[in-house]
Design a binder for these strands. Structure first.
Lengths: 142, 142
DNA sequence: GTAACACTTCAAGTATACTTGAAGTAAAAT
DNA sequence: ATTTTACTTCAAGTATACTTGAAGTGTTAC
């Protein structure tokens, strides 16, 4: 006979690893996003499986999925193992992520221009040189 | 004597242009993010200036700035014309945007892998071929 | 032994960003 | 002329994602 010990993590360890308050970890459990977390003497003992799931939660949440949508995704993935629905949700979400990425790149360029513009205004004021014109910064690559 | 007519836009036109409900436009005005909007017969008449400002609001908001932070930024920009503070806020925000961009790219790759993984599971099940293993998808470029 | 610490559950409270409802006005459509 | 449409103001309500508070338990520190 053979026994294997599975490495587990306390709620505070997980909290630090994922930079999430312990209250948020409990909240996700309440919502059913994390479940079957074993208790050792009443305390949560997260396994690698739970960490992987939590990684997925953060990834999807950070890319704009609501917790409700995450519940749906996990329900399709776990319970019924409804692959058609799982793929549909994932495909739709991936589309949205690509749009986000394109938009964020645009916004990044716009903000970069604005940063330069205001720094140049600051310099101009300090050195009593000619004030920059925003028209020279719009839609121009630096 | 010379009179120039400035092109203006109704709240519904602006709502459609920026894909924001009219109620949200009024809300932004309540918060002071948009101000000095002239009324023609009681109706809001947005000028190009307001559209530019609204564009900035959307850009900063979409990159994670809160409306309160936007109020601070605009206060530094408009009222006191406090360039040091304006630059500081912009610099800090730009840093955050670069981090977001890096993170979003990571998340995009992770989700792409997951999309492929589940599509491959679906195919495997339909064609009774070997099920894929997630380990073959982690941190691998396609 | 007892105080401090690190959790536990469960219910209620909060922050942000809108959103809705009620009551009114002014111009266009029938 | 009167109904419909498109706004207006102002106050109150809502959704999402947490966050806090109260009361309790089991291990560690002195």
């Amino acid at each position: 006979m053979e026994t294997t010990t599975v490495k587990t993590y306390s709620i505070t360890q997980v909290s630090k690893m994922y930079n999430l308050p312990t209250t948020t970890l409990r909240y996700y459990e309440d919502l059913g996003l994390l479940y079957d977390i074993p208790r050792i003497k009443g305390r949560r003992a997260y396994t690698q499986e739970h960490l992987n799931r939590l990684g997925a939660i953060c990834c999807f949440k950070d890319t704009g999925m609501t917790l409700k949508e995450l519940q749906e995704l996990f329900e399709a993935q776990d319970n019924d193992n409804d692959l058609t629905k799982t793929c549909e949700i994932l495909d739709n979400h991936y589309e949205r992520v690509l749009e986000q990425l394109a938009q964020l790149k645009k916004n990044e360029r716009h903000i970069k221009r604005k940063v330069r513009f205001y720094h140049d205004i600051k310099s101009a004021k300090e050195n009593h040189t000619k004030m920059p014109d925003w028209d020279d910064y719009r839609d121009r690559d630096f």
